[in-house]
Design a protein around this nucleic acid. Structure first.
Length: 577
DNA sequence: GCCGTTTTCGGCCCGACTGTTTTCAGTCG
């Protein structure tokens, strides 16, 4: 059974290259390792199916892919295997790879543990550490041994990453506590949270202060800190709760912009930026942009000043993934990203009629309080028995209730909709005779996830060809950290959707975010317009709209790419068939 | 292994912190 099944081919190829990169790192070939890492990262972000690029013979046009890596990719696409990977794996027991998962253990230590003590698994490492064998190695000591044991403990209860939606409230908590210290002049979350990545591995908090020690002191004494990993004069790392790592950086005021830039990342984005700096005779770090010769400060107070001095437009944090944004900034063709305040409605709402907890009116009231102008009620259809899905009769009743409610509401519209189930054969769970009377039809797959790619793709394309479908709901079906996307040829799905002018949903529910950023960008490139819906099952779920906007922004979407930026009358005109 | 208005060879981002070292290597972000 191929563990990569269900991933896109691009993700499979990236995965292979990542593993090769890690194996080279263990062998001490850091530059070769990095080359594979860069190529993997870039391929994971490609919006075009890599098979197409290969068929055109243009693999080497991908930045970071040269002759050798192109050959690895080609072999993998042809045979589903990589002889280079096999070869590297043979040279090293699998367990050694496991060791570098531990905090504080990198390729060098892992290899020495393996070569000198024959350790090739985390379990063996634990035994050796408990027996006091680690401290006897040259360059290791009692402290390292103790840290290894602690890291093993953390590794075992570690949750790889956290949902963005779960992390944002924690950030608010930390910011509020830190503001209680008057040495804190300004505090800002940076890192992947600022980039609004769908999952966050750890938190980076940036503080402006002229009294850094006091700030660090406040930081390590936060209420939920369970372990202090490091505590310096300008920098500290702690674990809060069971396993959330939080990094603090304290920066003097004059370096605000460069520090914010630096700590926002991503790593790949920053490396590229610093390479540009080097070529221009500068040095870029968290304190500013400096002339390499004279040491003179060129920029640093604002992020804009740093980008400008490097010949770039300022780049929105959500774009900073080295997915082409630096090239776009050089050429002045960055997108004008859609903003949260431009979203006028939520196009995927559940109510008590099926498995939601709010009435239609409660959902409308909440939407109004959020400043929205409309919502689309999209309860489940009948085959979702568990969710009390609606049959035609109940749906008609709901539609009548919405009509009555709309008569009472001013400056707000409740749209009549449905989240209709796409059945195994691609037909829909409700007849056209009722779908045609709705304003907004979301069609989604909720069963039969195990079907193969061809079946799944055909099923979805058939649904796209229904005359009354407005949008495909959570198109890939993935649940972040839990369920892989179903096998689907998205390229073909997007082609059909573009041709039929069917929307693709960006489902904003925290553990869905489906389409994701890369797929949203790919859909845009196919000429598809997207709809953002929170899939709210309770009134406060509508606050997740910001997560959907985050995905859209990370997918380079502009206001015209998102249908809910339209006022309700224009929206309805667009949806007419 | 990749890449090129300093280069087709010789570089490859940069600094903080820790633990082990008496001046630095490894790791991390």
């Amino acid at each position: 059974m191929n563990p990569l099944k269900g991933m896109s081919v691009n993700a499979e190829v990236a995965e292979i290259l990542y593993e090769i990169s890690e194996l080279y790192a263990l062998k001490g070939e850091q530059y070769r390792s990095r080359a594979y890492m860069m190529a993997a990262q870039r391929i994971g972000s490609l919006t075009e199916d890599i098979r197409k690029i290969w068929q055109r013979g243009e693999l080497q046009s991908i930045p970071g892919v040269g002759k050798s890596i192109a050959a690895v990719i080609e072999e993998y696409l042809e045979t589903g295997q990589s002889s280079k990977l096999e070869e590297l794996r043979e040279g090293l027991p699998r367990g050694v790879m496991e060791l570098i998962e531990l905090d504080g253990v990198g390729p060098k230590k892992a290899m020495r543990l393996y070569e000198e003590l024959g350790i090739n698994s985390i379990d063996e490492l634990e035994k050796a550490a408990k027996a006091g064998k680690i401290r006897r190695l040259k360059g290791f000591g009692p402290k390292t041994e103790e840290n290894i044991l602690q890291s093993i403990e953390e590794y075992r209860r570690r949750q790889e990453r956290f949902l963005l939606g779960a992390i944002l409230p924690v950030i608010d908590e930390i910011v509020a506590y830190m503001k209680g210290c008057d040495a804190v002049l300004r505090i800002e979350p940076a890192g992947s949270a600022r980039r609004r990545k769908e999952t966050v591995g750890d938190l980076d908090i940036l503080v402006l202060s002229t009294r850094p020690e006091e700030v660090v002191e406040r930081f390590v004494s936060m209420p939920r800190v369970s372990r202090v990993i490091s505590q310096g004069t300008t920098r500290s790392t702690v674990i809060i709760g069971a396993n959330l790592q939080v990094d603090l950086r304290v920066i003097p005021p004059e370096s605000y912009g460069s520090a914010l830039q630096y700590f926002t990342g991503s790593k790949a984005h920053n490396i590229k930026l610093r390479t540009i700096a080097v070529k221009k005779g500068y040095k870029l770090n968290e304190y500013g942009l400096f002339d390499r010769e004279t040491g003179e400060r060129i920029a640093g107070e604002t992020e804009e000043s740093v980008y400008k001095a490097l010949g770039l437009e300022w780049i929105e944090p959500e774009l900073r993934e080295d997915r082409g944004e630096i090239e776009a900034a050089m050429e002045g063709r960055l997108p004008r990203l859609v903003k949260e305040e431009e979203i006028r409605g939520d196009l995927h709402i559940h109510t008590k009629w099926s498995d939601g907890t709010g009435t239609i009116e409660e959902m409308a009231q909440k939407a109004m309080s959020l400043g929205l102008e409309y919502i689309a009620i999209c309860d489940h259809s009948k085959s979702m028995g568990i969710a009390r899905g609606l049959d035609e009769e109940r749906l008609r009743k709901q539609m009548a209730e919405i009509d009555r409610l709309n008569e009472r509401l001013e400056g707000f519209t409740v749209l009549k909709g449905i989240e209709v189930d796409i059945k195994a054969d691609g037909s829909l769970d409700l007849p056209d005779s009722v779908l045609k009377d709705l304003d907004f039809v979301v069609a989604s797959i909720h069963s039969g996830f195990k079907a193969d790619e061809r079946q799944m793709t055909e099923r979805m394309i058939r649904a796209i060809h229904n005359d009354y479908v407005s949008a495909i709901g959570h198109p890939t079906g993935r649940i972040i950290l839990r369920r892989r996307p179903y096998a689907l040829n998205l390229d073909k799905v997007f082609e059909a959707a573009a041709e039929q002018e069917v929307l693709m949903e960006i489902n904003a529910f925290p553990n869905r975010l489906d389409l994701n950023d890369v797929n949203a960008k790919a859909a845009k490139e196919h000429g598809i317009v997207m709809s953002i819906g929170t899939d709210a099952h309770a009134p406060n779920h509508m606050e997740f709209l910001n997560l959907g906007v985050a995905v859209a922004r990370r997918g380079w979407l502009e206001p015209g790419d998102v249908i809910n930026t339209l006022p309700v009358d224009e929206l309805l005109r667009k949806l007419e068939r």
